[in-house]
Amino acid sequence: MRTITYRQALNEALDEEMARDPRVFLFGEDIAIYGGAYGVTAGLWQKYGDERVIDTPISENAIVGTALGAALTGLRPVAEIMYIDFIGLCMDQLNNQVAKIRYMFGGKCTVPLVIRTEGGAGRTLGAHHSQSLESWLIHIPGIKVVMPSTPYDAKGLLKSSIRDDNPIVFIEHKMLYNTKGEVPEEEYLVPIGVADVKKEGKDVTIVTYSRMVLFSLEAAKILEKEGISVEVIDLRTLLPIDIETVVKSVKKTNRVIIVEEDCKTGGTGAEIGMQIIENAFDYLDAPIVRVAGADVPMPKSPVLEKLAIPDVERICKTVKEMLK
């Protein structure tokens, strides 16, 4: 099978869905001539023109608000918020309008809207360009939150998101754009809300998502050589969480570590861990442990940035401690 980058996989998903459905259009900052801050929309403005790839002013609140208006009235916008750090600028539109409108109006409308954004640390960009804010979003009933880790999932999930009639926040990771993976030429979809066992194992389950899947798989490989068998579950969708897949694994390994890049306190891992307790407490042989980001704004200094998020070494160490 051919191998392409995460960036290219996303680009193909947008291209294919725009070709398939004339109601789909792209809407955001620097997505047209520039092709997106991280190059995801490259070439699409040249192909589809000004009316389907629209460069907006720096007006995040209005980007989400107008995308919602368009979604309510017959179109299927794919809006882009350049960095997830800027989501605060449009949180009212997202939380009070996008997420609630269908419910408030008694189910009489749909909101086929995707908000693509990107997050995470790794480029030493400091506190306003490196955050992992997914836990803010999973606290909003009415939206779905998708966070792919591989090119294959990125493409299949973005296509599914664009076809979904619900509002979706689709969070990419800046350190994944150049990663490569197998992606078939032929069309496929990856269902939203379904986790993926990226590696089977029997001693301990790591539940993770986005870039931390790569770190966890690397850790699992190292641990394999030491005779420790780790199962790695990539949640892929954080809202709704596919707890069944997680529970199935817990019943097998009886041990769970959650690896997440976001701040530990009130983070995504807190929700995942609680759902495991609610659904599989009797199967746990050890307390659930989180390997998470530090509860601090992301520091600029490369040495501090590395310490602020999980790394392979910390994951390995945590697994070994759990199995002691």
Binding site: L125, G126, A127, H128, H129, P299, K300, S301, L304
Partner: peptide, 13 residues
């Protein structure tokens, strides 16, 4: 460490 914000802010801050 000797930076004006102790290396925590960087160019953007």
């Amino acid at each position: 460490k000797t930076g004006v914000c102790k290396g925590k802010g960087g160019s953007l801050h």
